[in-house]
Simulated assay, not measured.
Amino acid sequence: MALAPDRLAIKQLEDALSAVLALGGNNPPAQVVRRIRDGLATHAAAVEAARAATDPIQMPMVSFDPADPKAIGRMVSIALLAQPLVRLGSVQPAYGSGVYAIYYRGDHPLYAGITRTETPIYVGKADPANDDASTVREQGAKLTGRLLEHAGTIATAATYSPQLPDYLSPLKLDDFLCRRLVCATNAQLVAEKHLIRTFWPIWNAETKACWGMSKHGDAATTRANKRSPWDVVHPGRAWALDERLVDSLTPAEIQERINATLQKVPAKRDHAALLEELLEGFRQEGPPLTEPEVPPVGENVVGPELNEAGGVDDV
């Protein structure tokens, strides 16, 4: 006996799902697993939309949960963008841990696509001194400490400017601004991830374009390995000038990756429009927004390596 059209359609859907699950059950490559998960997530939203369309009682596509990590990440990110811009070189020590964003306002040719925009060149977090800190004093002066560390790194590269070869351009600490937000302990974890997935900042390791700025220093076990892209185009740190090091990328390759990143994720140029974009994540009329996990340059592009000089990038 033939199935009714609706039952036949559901049966076909079940068969297709079984086929997908079978493909994921034989230890497939990571790329296949990622494609399966992304595909299932997309179709899960479509199935829920179809289910809602057949329900005579309307329901929101998304229910707001302030405890949801993604919601926390969005809320903290919006709060960060509400903070004033200050010169990175003028940051003074203050208590608190949290998240921050660094912006570029100069004329370096590598960063022509983001200069004087709302897209940060780097975002990061500063974890509290104590994992269970409940006050900003208990958190310690971690947030400003991290910003001062970055300011020192940029200043070191700026000091080296007179020795730069002709094909490299100098950095100036005065060309950098920042926003910072002190937040409750652990909120910085999800906020940093959301900020990275929103902007794909050029200097963040996850973007795989010009990583290395947040490395802390020399390690005896990595002195004969690779020099990070950041140290390739912004030399000055003594441990990264070691002649035994090999450049991980050439300046031209770094430029190509920056261009590829900005082509897929153009710089945000309007503050109000950026806030509106972030607020879309809280709207209940449409399907939930998903955060991209793969960097704009592609999943298979080689990024930071564990044996690079200076150790791993700070996270």
Score class of each variant (00 low, 15 high):
T144V: 03
A126Y: 03
Y167R: 10
G39Q: 07
N225G: 06
Q83I: 13
K193N: 02
A184F: 09
D174R: 15
P288L: 05
P128L: 05
M1S: 12
A184D: 06
E308H: 14
I102N: 00
V62E: 04
L171V: 11
P69Y: 07
P60S: 12
E206T: 12
L249Q: 08
D174T: 15
I36G: 04
M61A: 12
P201W: 00
N27H: 15
S134N: 07
A184W: 06
I114K: 03
R35V: 06
D65F: 13
T117S: 12
L40V: 13
P93S: 09
E206I: 05
I121S: 00
L289A: 06
D218T: 15
A71Y: 07
L171C: 07
R197H: 04
R35I: 08
L274K: 08
S169H: 14
C178Y: 02
G24W: 04
D38H: 11
T42E: 09
N26D: 13
G106L: 09
E276R: 14
A71G: 08
L85F: 14
D55S: 15
L147S: 01
G89K: 08
V86Y: 02
S97M: 05
G73P: 05
Q83H: 10
G113F: 09
D174H: 11
E285K: 13
E138K: 12
N259I: 10
K70D: 03
Y100W: 05
P304E: 10
V297T: 03
S63G: 12
M213D: 00
T119M: 05
P109V: 11
V315D: 04
Y160M: 09
A224V: 11
V47E: 02
L8D: 09
T290R: 09
A49S: 11
A52N: 15
A220I: 14
